[in-house]
Each structure stands twice: as C-alpha cells, then as structure tokens.
Design a binder for these strands. Structure first.
Lengths: 218, 218
DNA sequence: GAGATTATGTCAGCGACTGACAAGTGGCAA
DNA sequence: TTGCCACTTGTCAGTCGCTGACATAATCTC
C-alpha cells in the first residue's frame, strides 16, 4: 500500500489487517464487476472466505467499503493541499491541489485506491452514495485548510465551508460530466471538475456574464 | 394546503389524495414524537389505518415522506426567489429569498410543511438524510435561477452550481448551528444560514481575513 | 501447556422494501 | 340496477442490510 500505516506486530493483528484488505479488495472487485447495488454483503464475505457476520465486524456498512477506498484517495488530496504554497487562497489552493492530486493518482494508478477512485467515477450508481460521504470527507479537508490558514475549524466555520463548497462543485462537475456521456475515463472528469471550480467565483460573487454568451474560455 | 394542486374530481382520486396526506401527516407526527429512526414504516401505516404494503405504494421509501414535506418548503423558497428583483446577482438573490422565505414559513407556521421544516431542523438524526435530498432539490432551484438569468440549466452549468453551493452553505450552517447547542428554534438557524451564505464569497474568492481575527460582524 | 483474550461461525431476528396473488371498491355503460 | 372492468388494498412470502447472543476455535500470555 502507498498509505503509511504502522506495521502490525503480532500474528493476530497481521491476520486482521490482511483480512480487512482482502474484504476491501473483494468488495471493490465485485462492485466493479456486477455493480454496487447488485453485490450483496454475503457475496463479498464469501469472496473473502469468511461469513457475512465477519464482514460486518470489519465494515460498519456496505457503503463503508467504498468510503474506505475514497479515504485513501483523500489522503493524497490532503497531501497535495499541504504541498501548495501557503499564501495561496484556500479555495484556489484546493483547486490546484485537485489538479496535482490527479497527476499523483494517475502515476500510482496500479494501486487499489486509485482504481477505486476511477471505479466510483465510472459508476453513476454510486454518485448519490458518494455525496453522502462528502460531509465525512470534508472534515479532513477542513482540518488541513485550518492548518494552512492558521485557524481552528472548530471555532471558525470558514475552513469547513471551503471544503463543503469544494465538494459541492465537484459533485456538480461529476453530474455534468456523466450527463455528457462520460466517454473519456479520467481526463475529461478532471477537466469538468476544474471547470466547475473555476466557475464558482462567478456563481457566488463575481459578475454573472450575459445570457447571450453562455460560453467562456477556461 | 398552501400548495396549489388541481383538485381531484372522482371519489377514487379524492380518497387517494386524502390517504397520501394522511400517511404524510402520520409519518411526520411520528417522526416528531419518536424520532425518525425509531419510527417504523409499519407504524406509519398503522397510524394511517392501512397496511405497510400500501404505505410503500404511496411512498417509494421512508425517506420520501420527509422529502415530500421538504418539497413543499422548497416551493415557497422558489416563489420567494422569483419575487426577488431580477438584476440581483443569483447567489445574492437566493440568499435574500432564503430570508424572505423564512418569514413566509413563520407566517404560515400552522401549515404542515412549515412544521416539517422545523422538525427536520431540530432532528440532527435527519441531517445526513437531508443532504441526500439536496441534489434532487437543487434541480428545482436551478430551474428558477435559469429563468431569472435567462440561461438554460441543461446547457449552462452555472445555475445548478449556484444551487449546489447554496445548499452546501446551508448544510454547513446547519452543522455549526446544531454543534452550538441549537437552543433557539428557528431564528438562530436562519441567522446561521445567512451567516454561512455571507461567508461564501470570502471562502472562495475574496480576501481571507487574518487568522488573528477570527471574528467579524455579519 | 493451561488459562485468559479475541476472532469467527451460526442462528435468530428486525426493519426497509418488493413481487405475486386474491379480494374488495369505485367508475361506467347497458 | 346490474354487471363488467379498472384500480386499490391486504396478505404472504421473500430478499437484503444489519445486529445481538452464544458457542467454538484461534491466538496470546504466563
């Protein structure tokens, strides 16, 4: 794995971590093959060679399998955000981190988390489910934004607001992308994301361009 | 009801509409009394004097009962938005429509939809569920924004982006409001909403105020 | 190697939700 | 009014996500 986690020492802990990953892989693979809805938790468990009950001892819900994968992706995004110059405006930094993060994901595309991100993007079935995660995910992003700007997300609502708006724009981008056929795999999606992010200022404070001119360059 | 719907003519249709409303009222009342999670669909059905199966013939899911009520509230919001001067910036108009809409809701507070809105606000249990509706709800808002600005939401992504960001800010406001005790019923919530909405420009494009000065007047 | 922890399987059960079938009710024409 | 048709409803059985309880088996500790 690319994510740095402390290596478990005992045999028991090693087996546990191993089973968790087996379950995760089984779930993602089945979701990819048959679709999220058509995959049952029993199948995931059977695929990993354990009982359904054991599956639920490792994952609180079926959705959590997806969330687990997404969190891996988010870690890369947070790292990319931390790497941005600290004088960049938070939202702009997030936008640029998104672009950087995409490159990193593509570079490490062999990793599971990366393919999980793709698979979520490719399955409109998961779009709504993905939205549900956002408010869990935004907390982490808000944390990093708080670090960058030197404010405490617990007292200042702005970091989480930035994160929330960021995900909102992403969701919108995903919608337009999937509405427009979503033929190309990842490149078009990134473009859609960046496009939405760049439209946000106009959508909330800048001059709203004339209706006769709906198009404009990125 | 405050919502204008064509009166059903036949006895059959009238009974149907009546049962639908009975189920809706039963659901909302039980949610309010026992909480959303602790209310079963069987109880709602029994409370309305029908079988569970019949409940699911009127509502696709338990969540849809809440959505139904929220949609009533959204209609008021859309009307308030239409009433705003057309030269107002879409996001600003939405923000002001929110304030107007609140007044209307309070004035018609005896109506069911209004109390439903309150009840959702008061139940943190429903916050996550509420988020799920947003992307259904935003489509309607985007429609009205499209009317106002003279662009087609199907081709121009900005109306739905405005709506998405609007709901994102609202969600954030709800979070901070419920995190801070949520003692006052509705007035504090409106203030939290407006506060978040007013922070959005700063969060995405304007100057990010210094960390040493976390507070600022509304 | 014995005893205490911990992980797992099995089983039974709840609640949301669905399909199928039978029975009741309203609408309408002869 | 009668009789037929469409529609609505209840009942039943079943699926799936998810959980608690208990017994068994694996691991860890001494």
């Amino acid at each position: 794995m690319s994510t740095t986690s402390p290596e478990p020492v005992g045999l028991r802990e090693r087996k546990k971590a191993q089973l968790r990953e087996t379950l995760l892989n089984s779930g993602l693979r089945l979701f990819h093959e048959k679709g999220y809805e058509k995959t049952t938790t029993e199948e995931i468990a059977a695929c990993a060679g354990v009982s359904q009950r054991t599956f639920f001892r490792y994952f609180a819900s079926k959705e959590d399998v997806v969330l687990e994968a997404v969190e891996g992706v988010d870690e890369v995004l947070c790292a990319a955000l931390r790497a941005r110059p600290s004088d960049e405006h938070p939202f702009r930094a997030l936008r640029n981190a998104m672009r950087d993060h995409w490159v990193i994901l593509e570079r490490e595309n062999l990793h599971l988390q990366g393919s999980a991100g793709n698979f979520i993007s490719q399955s409109p079935e998961l779009f709504e489910a993905n939205m549900r995660y956002c408010h869990r995910r935004q907390a982490k992003l808000a944390e990093v934004i708080g670090e960058r700007t030197g404010v405490d997300p617990a007292t200042d609502p702005r970091p989480s607001l930035v994160a929330t708006v960021f995900f909102a724009a992403l969701n919108n981008g995903f919608q337009t992308w999937s509405a427009s056929g979503c033929t190309d795999s990842t490149d078009g999606l990134l473009r859609a994301f960046l496009h939405q992010l760049d439209l946000v200022p106009e959508a909330v404070c800048e001059t709203w361009s004339t209706p006769g001119d709906p198009h404009h360059q990125a």
